[in-house]
Amino acid sequence: MSAALRTTVVAVHRDAEHRFSKQLEDCIELEEGLGVVGDAHHGLTARHRSRAKADPFQPNLRQVHLISDSLFAHLAGLGFDVAAGELGENVTLASAPGLEWDALVALPVGTRLHFAQGPVVELTGLRNPCAQLDRFHKGLLAAMLDKDAAGRVRRKAGVMGVVRAGGPIGGGDAVRVRLPRAPHRAMECV
């Protein structure tokens, strides 16, 4: 990596219930191997309802959901008023060079985000936009999907990760991004 990728945390969110949006918190606590303490997706095995229904024993690769705040500006340009936490993310990151919404979803599997107070989140894949988006804002599902120049589907709903080191995360915390060793593998939906 030629230049260090760095950003800050804009906001953190959690919700003990399976709801679409998450509540703003001053601080969240990450627990190694399990996720955000007090969040509905906290656990060693799948907590996402459709994934748990298909196989309740599969590993939980969706412990932490992260979005770049530049996604909200992008969506505003498409006519959607969406704020931090409303898309169900746990961590909203500040847009920074190389970490805008489209660059965040292009990071490789295994990228690690090191948060100032000690937590480490390893990216596992993309969040797949679902029909709940249209119940939140009509037409939002289509806006969260796009195609690249080669005609491949691009998903804009953020990235998912697992907790490799626990600790607190709060608004304003610095974040350092470390790419895995090459060869890199593109993220897919998890």
Rank of each mutant, 00 (worst) to 15 (best):
M144I: 05
A157T: 00
W101I: 05
R47F: 00
V162E: 12
G118M: 07
D55A: 12
R127H: 12
F72R: 15
V177E: 00
G170H: 15
H48N: 07
R127Q: 02
L126P: 09
P129H: 05
V177F: 00
D55M: 02
L71S: 04
M160D: 02
V82A: 06
D148V: 01
G98A: 00
L145K: 15
L93F: 06
N60R: 07
L140Q: 03
S95M: 11
N90K: 13
L75R: 10
S70Q: 13
V162M: 09
R135D: 13
G118H: 10
P129R: 10
F115S: 12
A106C: 03
G170A: 15
L99W: 04
V177N: 00
Q117Y: 03
G118N: 08
G118Q: 12
M144H: 11
S68D: 03
G98Y: 01
F136A: 04
Q58S: 12
P183Y: 04
L66V: 08
K156G: 02
A131T: 07
F80D: 04
G110N: 08
Q132H: 11
V109H: 08
M144K: 07
L140A: 02
D55P: 02
R178H: 10
D146E: 09
L66Q: 10
V105N: 00
T92A: 14
G158M: 03
D146F: 01
D148Q: 09
T124E: 10
H114I: 06
L123K: 06
L75T: 13
A182S: 15
D148L: 07
